[in-house]
Nucleic acid binder design. Structure first.
Lengths: 125, 125
DNA sequence: CTTGCTGTTCTAGGTAGATAATACAGGAAA
DNA sequence: TTTCCTGTATTATCTACCTAGAACAGCAAG
């Protein structure tokens, strides 16, 4: 499972962890009934405080995406993959909408916005 | 000058204020040698603490986009419009690049990303 | 049993952002 | 002059996020 944390982002670390795990589940990198890395192991991998990881896991648990087995670890729930796939799409749709709205509100013309999109990866090579 | 603050954003308020003023200058809503609303007036308009506005203005001043006249107010610098236009473009290019990178890293396929962009305002209507 | 790993909980401290209230210095205008 | 508005500075308080360290409960495997 590849997880990358951006320390320069204003988005809280625990939220980044939550999103990244959702993405990993959505992508099929972790399947239902499989275990995700323990709090302490993930803490070591990302060089982040265990409490921060634990908070992220608590969020996932509250959303019903994972359930816990004391002494064992945390297991991905049955319906998690489908839920995460939908959430992933929703997350990025929302992100893009915000980008568009802000760009328009900033006074950038439609043409300028399209140019930014075109020059940075939309539908070519 | 139209300024909108998004309280749900993780971006700090003072940063939002900074960006919005830059956008207003870039769009020509405020021109060189014109004054921007006073700390207290802007504070009233946005219902935000004067200290937060003052901090935003301090950033603008440190960047040389505005200069202050005690007792008078804050004035937009000569070269501000050009600088702000370049920064505006850079800001949104960077935002879009982040969006693209995160979307790709999440496991979304190129086709799915293109679909999100297409269905939310790119090059139609 | 003991050992070692789980997740969980707790207290404490540090930092950044935002708010609140106050005070000061300087220019404009009466 | 006085009055009123500027920007600026200070102090205190609150919250969220993050870190740190310790302790506890439960399960597995030796």
């Amino acid at each position: 499972m590849l997880i990358e944390i951006d320390p320069t982002s204003t988005q809280p670390i625990f939220e980044q962890v939550v999103d990244q795990i959702k993405f990993a589940v959505a992508a099929g990198a972790i399947r239902a009934n499989e275990m995700i890395p323990s709090v302490r192991e993930m803490s070591r991998q990302l060089a982040i405080n265990p409490n921060t990881i634990a908070r992220a896991y608590r969020v996932l648990q509250d959303e019903g995406l994972v359930y816990t087995r004391r002494g064992m670890g945390i297991v991905v729930a049955e319906q998690a993959e489908e839920i995460c796939q939908n959430q992933r799409k929703a997350i990025f749709t929302e992100k893009f909408r915000r980008f568009r709205a802000q760009a328009a509100q900033s006074g950038l013309s439609q043409a300028e916005i399209d140019e930014i999109i075109k020059n940075n990866g939309y539908m070519n090579t």
